[in-house]
Write a protein that binds this DNA or RNA. Structure first.
Lengths: 351, 351
DNA sequence: CTGAAAGCGCTTACAG
DNA sequence: CTGAAAGCGCTTACAG
C-alpha cells in the first residue's frame, strides 16, 4: 500500500536510461528516440510517478505575479474592504511558493479611472489577474486584451459571459434573492405588503441587483405565503434625502407595508430612515456585513443580512489562479459560494 | 522593498563564518563560541532571515503521522461522515509536505470499543492526534496518556477543560442555542408553546445538548417575544416508538404547541412523526445537514437546520496540527466556527 | 539523441 | 568550537 514514492532516479534505473532522459520525456522537450520514450513512459505509468513539488519549486525558483483589480473601498462601500483580507490570507497560505500579489484599485464611481488602471495592469505583465467586472464595456475590452496577452484572469463579485475567464467564484444572485424571499416571507404578516428597494442611478445597469429582485419575487410567487402587494421601488441616489423623498411617498401610499427588501448593500441607510420615523414594525432584510449594517442588525432595525463571503471569493480566486499557473489545473468554471443567513445572534462569528 | 530573501549562505558571508555555523546558531545545536553566536544572531536579525520551507522539507524528508479518533459513521449518525471529508481535503492541500493521516474510528455506542482504540492509537506513536471526546472519562485518561507521551492533540466536536489540548475548533454550543432560540421566536406565534426535545439515555451526560438548551432558553427569556410555555422534554431512545410514546402524551397535554426545538441532530425522526400525524402547523428547528434532515427541510417539515461545519472542524484541525508540528506555531486555544442558518433555499450550497 | 555534472537552499554527519 | 562536503529530488545547460 504505502510504498515509497518513485523518484526520477528510480524511473531512470528501471528504464535503463539516465535521469536527464526521463526528464526530457516528462516535459516533452529535447528529442528522445521513440523506443526510449515509450520505455520511459511505460515505467512512468507503472511506478505512478509524480514529481516532488518541493524539489521542483526549489529548483526553478519561479515567482508568480498576481495582480488584482478591485474597487477602492470607501465609506460608502466598505464592502470592498473584505476582499484584500482573503487575498492576503491566500498569499500567506502559499508562502513557500513565492507568490507576489499586486493590488490595484479603482474608483468605483469612475469609469475613466478604471480604464486607466487596466492599462497599468497590462503594462506590468502579471502572470494572472483577479477582476471585479464592475463596468461592463470597459471590462470586456480589458478581458480581451488579457486574452490576447495570454494572461489568465478570474472574476469575483460577478462575471461577464462572453469573455475567456478562467473561473468565477461568488454568489448565485438569483438563488440569493430566493433566500431573501423565503426569510422575508417567514417573518412578514401574510396580509401586509412588501417593498423591494433598488438604489441605482440606472436601474437597467445593475444586473446583479435585478437578479436578486427576480429571485425574491420568484420565491414569493411560487413558494411564499404572503398575500400582500409586492412593489419594486427605485431610489436614484444613495443619499438620505433621496431615500426620504421616495419612502415618505411610498409608505404613505402603502401604509400596510410589512417588510422591506433591500437588494444592495446599503441597508443601513434604510434602517436609519426607519429608526428615525420609529417604524419598528417594518422588517428590513438586506445584504452584506458592513459595519454600519451590523450595527443596525444588532439594534434590531435589520432582521436578516445575507452574506456572500467576499473574503472567500478572493481567497479561493488567488488559490485557483495559483493552481492553474503552477500545475495547469483548470478549475470549475463557476463556483457558487454558500449564501449565509445572518442575524444579530450569529453575526459575530462571521466577522 | 521587495529585496531578495537572505539565504543561509548570505548570512554566513556577512557574519564571516561558514554556513554550518549559521545553521548551528539557528537550531541551537552544537557548541558555538559566544561571540560567534552573537555576531550571527545580529546578522540574522539584520537580514530578517527566515528559512526556505521548500529546501527545509526537501532536505529533511520528514513525514508527519497524524491519527484521528472519531466515531464510525452509520445510519443513525451520518453526521460523522462529514469529518473525514475535511481531513482528506486538508491532507491534499498539504500534499507537498508528506503528511500521512491514519483514521481510526470507534463505535459511538460502545465505551469499551473506544478504550480499545485509544490503546491502538497510542501504540502507533503518531506525531499528533485529532479527537472527538465523546466519552468523557475514557477521553480524559487517553488525553493524559498522550500528554505523557508528548503527543499533541486537538479536539473537534467538543472539548474537555482539564486536558492539555492544543486547540479546539468547533461550535459555541450556548450561542448556537441562542441562534436557534431567535429563529424559533421569529417564526412562532407569540401565544403558542415551545417544546425543547433532548434525545438521550442519560440527560446529564450530554453536555453540549444541555448547553444548547440553555442558550435557547436564555434567548427566549431575555430577548424573545414568545409568551407561551417552554417545556424541556427528554426522550430516552432514538426510536420511532419512544418518540411516539413521549410526543403523543406531551402534545395532548400541550395542544397549543407552536414549535419544537430538537437539540441534537436527529430532527428527521421528529419530522417523520409530525408528517405522519399531519401536524404541519408545528415548526421544527434542528441541527446538522444529514441527508435525512435535508429531505425534510426541503419538504417543509423542518424550517431551519443549524449547521456546525463538521468538515471545516477537521480540516482546520489537521492544518493547525501540521503548523504546530512543522513550524511550532501554537494556534488559538479555541476557535468557534460560524453557526450556519440553513433553510430549504440555501441548503444546496452547504452540501 | 543521451549522459554526467552543477546547483536550488538547507541539514547532517564527519574531520579537524 | 568550526568548516567542508555530501545529498534531498529536480532541472538546466553542456559535452559528446
Amino acid at each position: 500500500m504505502s510504498q515509497k514514492k518513485a523518484r526520477i532516479k528510480d524511473v531512470a534505473k528501471l528504464a535503463g536510461v539516465s535521469i536527464g532522459t526521463v526528464d526530457r520525456v516528462i516535459h516533452n522537450r529535447g528529442e528522445v528516440a521513440i523506443e526510449t520514450r515509450l520505455k520511459v513512459e511505460s515505467v512512468l505509468k507503472e511506478t505512478n510517478y509524480s514529481p516532488d513539488l518541493m524539489a521542483q519549486v526549489l529548483k526553478s525558483r519561479k515567482i508568480f505575479n498576481i495582480t488584482s483589480l478591485l474597487p477602492e473601498p470607501n465609506e460608502l462601500n466598505s464592502y470592498w474592504k473584505k476582499h484584500p483580507v482573503g487575498m492576503t490570507k491566500a498569499i500567506k497560505d502559499l508562502e513557500p511558493f513565492h507568490v507576489i500579489l499586486n493590488q490595484v484599485t479603482f474608483d468605483i464611481q469612475n469609469e475613466e479611472d478604471f480604464q486607466k488602471k487596466t492599462i497599468e495592469v497590462l503594462k506590468n505583465k502579471p502572470d494572472g489577474v483577479i477582476l471585479a467586472p464592475i463596468f461592463k464595456t470597459q471590462s470586456i475590452a480589458f478581458c480581451s486584451n488579457l486574452t490576447k496577452e495570454n494572461i489568465p484572469f478570474i472574476f469575483v463579485d460577478g462575471y461577464l459571459e462572453n469573455t475567456e475567464f478562467l473561473t468565477y467564484t461568488g454568489e448565485d444572485t438569483f438563488k440569493s434573492g430566493r433566500v431573501a424571499g423565503q426569510l422575508t416571507d417567514m417573518i412578514t404578516d401574510p396580509k401586509r405588503d412588501i417593498l423591494i428597494i433598488v438604489i441605482a442611478r440606472n436601474i437597467k445597469n445593475v444586473h446583479h441587483l435585478n437578479n436578486r429582485t427576480q429571485g425574491f419575487i420568484d420565491y414569493l410567487e411560487k413558494s411564499g405565503t404572503n398575500k400582500g402587494k409586492k412593489l419594486i421601488i427605485n431610489i436614484p441616489e444613495p443619499t438620505d434625502k433621496s431615500i426620504k423623498l421616495v419612502l415618505d411617498k411610498t409608505l404613505k401610499e402603502n401604509p400596510e407595508t410589512g417588510s422591506i427588501f433591500m437588494t444592495g448593500s446599503r441597508s443601513f441607510l434604510l434602517a436609519a430612515y426607519l429608526e428615525k420615523k420609529r417604524l419598528n414594525n417594518i422588517n428590513l432584510v438586506g445584504y452584506d456585513l458592513l459595519e454600519e449594517n451590523v450595527r443596525y442588525l444588532k439594534s434590531g432595525a435589520i432582521k436578516f443580512l445575507i452574506g456572500q463571503r467576499p473574503e472567500e471569493q478572493t481567497n479561493k480566486g488567488v488559490k485557483k489562479l495559483f493552481e492553474f499557473l503552477s500545475k495547469h489545473k483548470t478549475p470549475e468554471k463557476i463556483e457558487y459560494l454558500p449564501i449565509d443567513v445572518v442575524t444579530s445572534e450569529n453575526v459575530d462569528f462571521y466577522i
